[in-house]
Amino acid sequence: MNVRFDLDPSVTPELRDDICALWADVSNAGGAVGFLPPVTREDIRPELLKHLTAMAEGRERLLVGRDEDGRILATAFLTFNGHRLMNHWLWVYAVMVHPSLQGQGTGRRLMTAVADAARGFDGITGIRLTCRGGTGISRFYEACGYKEVGRVPGAIKVADDDFRDDITMWLELG
């Protein structure tokens, strides 16, 4: 499927609803994007509103991937680092690809679009993200050029008896 990536789309009610729907679909399919299934769009809406507020304040940018009908099938929030000694790199959050597109190259294209967008921001030399251990997703990020630079064992609790590592990944922009 052809997915077109756009940076900083207009924030409309449709955009908010589409991102909520994507986030719920990814979460309910087992994606490690900050929620545990089952979740509803209403469970996700407050977290999305935090990101949209940061966008309105100029602290975040949004990258979306859309199909030919305009439906949002991929997202990533690029968050500027506010610390004066670390403002040369940014964070990436809520990296999502619709479950129907998993394994078809859309995720790699999304991460390429993230890196391309970051290169276009003045002074940005690196990208940092975290991912949940035990999912295999760190191998995906490594295949996209990221390297593991840190790990906090058992930092993420997904069930009473299931603790996962919080893995920090880094991409040096060249």
Rank of each mutant, 00 (worst) to 15 (best):
E14M: 04
E14N: 06
E14S: 12
L15G: 04
L15C: 00
L15Q: 06
L15W: 09
D17F: 10
D17M: 12
D17G: 14
D17R: 13
D17Q: 14
D17T: 13
D18L: 00
D18Y: 06
I19R: 05
I19G: 03
I19W: 02
I19P: 07
I19A: 00
I19D: 02
I19T: 06
C20S: 08
C20L: 07
A21N: 13
A21W: 10
L22P: 05
L22K: 04
W23D: 02
W23N: 01
W23S: 01
W23Q: 00
W23G: 09
A24T: 14
A24L: 07
D25L: 03
D25Q: 09
D25E: 12
D25V: 09
V26H: 00
S27D: 06
S27L: 06
S27T: 15
N28C: 07
N28F: 05
N28W: 04
A29C: 06
A29L: 03
A29S: 09
A29K: 06
A29R: 03
A29F: 10
A29N: 08
A29Y: 08
G30E: 07
G31E: 00
A32S: 15
V33A: 08
V33T: 09
G34P: 00
G34Y: 03
F35R: 03
F35M: 04
F35Y: 10
F35V: 01
L36K: 05
L36M: 08
L36T: 14
L36H: 05
L36P: 03
P37V: 14
V39H: 01
V39N: 05
V39T: 12
V39P: 02
T40K: 13
T40I: 15
T40R: 13
R41Q: 08
R41T: 15
R41P: 02
R41M: 01
R41S: 08
R41N: 03
E42I: 04
E42V: 01
E42G: 03
E42H: 02
D43N: 11
D43A: 10
I44Q: 01
I44T: 08
I44H: 02
I44L: 07
I44D: 01
R45M: 12
P46E: 12
P46H: 11
P46M: 12
P46Y: 09
P46T: 13
E47Q: 14
E47L: 12
E47S: 14
E47K: 09
E47W: 03
L48R: 01
L48A: 10
L48H: 06
L48M: 03
L49A: 15
K50M: 14
K50H: 15
H51M: 02
L52Y: 07
L52Q: 05
T53L: 09
A54K: 11
A54D: 08
A54P: 00
A54M: 11
M55D: 02
M55C: 03
M55N: 04
